[in-house]
Amino acid sequence: MSKVVVSFRKENCKGCGLCINACPKGLLDFSESTNNAGYPTVYLKEEESCTGCALCAVMCPDVAITVEKEVSA
């Protein structure tokens, strides 16, 4: 399985939870920490299980999620 990197622009997140709802494998959850605006932020629980489908990013209203996938040469 190719490597997937999911990164969060933490300060853009408003804690709406639509990404958590969108993940078909239930891999996202709210973290303990909040951002400067006071919103709870999201983290990827099991990086290795993520397929990079990017549905979380598709549903994110704040363009806070970037999904990158390693491409085999």
Binding site: V5, G52, V58, V63, I65, T66, V67, E68, K69, V71
Partner: peptide
């Protein structure tokens, strides 16, 4: 790495 989904250039 290939960006599957991220911020497009046409957004600030």
């Amino acid at each position: 790495m290939k960006v599957i989904s991220g911020k497009p250039e046409s957004l600030t």
